Computed example of a mutant assay.
Amino acid sequence: MQIGANSLLQEMQTLSGEIKPNGLTSGITQQVANTSGSDFGQLLSQAVGSVNSLQANSSSMQTRLDMGDTRVTLSDTVIAREKASVAFEATVQVRNKLVEAYKEIMSMPV
């Protein structure tokens, strides 16, 4: 299966119009849209940093909820945890695709 960077970006932009903007989807799609000429490593680093910040936020909200902070609700905590979980799963899938592509390239005859 061939996936081009431009077709993937167009697909993401199309899907971003169908998704209601929130902290997770709008932030990641803006990062992808703004990095048209930047390095792939930098893009990957930004994406991992975004996932890390979502997980840190989720952990912080969980701790605050456990400590009895009245400003944090259970629903907000669950939503933050699910955002972090979805972002992490997407990162794992991207990693799996990259490893698969690398193996395929390395197995090509020269």
Rank of each mutant, 00 (worst) to 15 (best):
R95W: 03
I28Q: 01
A90F: 03
S75W: 03
D39R: 11
Q46M: 11
Q31Y: 00
L65M: 11
D39I: 08
S26Y: 01
E11P: 01
E82K: 14
N52I: 05
S60V: 11
L15D: 13
R64A: 08
Q30I: 01
Q10H: 12
M108D: 04
M106R: 13
K20W: 09
S45P: 02
T77D: 02
T77I: 05
G68R: 09
T14S: 12
G23S: 13
Q30Y: 05
R95V: 06
M12G: 01
L8N: 05
T25E: 04
E11Y: 08
A80D: 01
D69M: 14
N22R: 08
V99G: 02
Q46I: 03
G49Q: 12
M108P: 00
L65K: 06
R64Q: 14
N57H: 09
M67N: 15
T73Q: 08
M106S: 14
G68M: 09
Y102S: 08
F40N: 08
M106N: 15
V48F: 00
N22Y: 09
L65Q: 05
M61V: 03
V99K: 09
T77M: 11
Q42L: 13
Q2I: 10
R64S: 07
E104I: 03
V32C: 06
L74K: 15
G4W: 04
A87Q: 01
N34F: 02
K103N: 15
K20R: 15
A87H: 01
T91N: 03
Q55L: 13
S75Q: 09
G68W: 09
M67T: 13
T77L: 04
E11A: 15
R95S: 07
S26A: 13
Q30F: 04
R71P: 01
V110G: 06
L74V: 14
L15M: 14
S16C: 11
L54C: 06
Q13A: 14
Q31N: 05
D39P: 06
L54I: 07
R81M: 07
T63N: 12
G41Y: 08
V48H: 00
G23I: 01
V86A: 05
D66W: 07
Q55P: 01
V99A: 11
Q2Y: 10
T35I: 02
N6D: 14
S50G: 09
T91G: 03
Q55I: 07
Y102C: 06
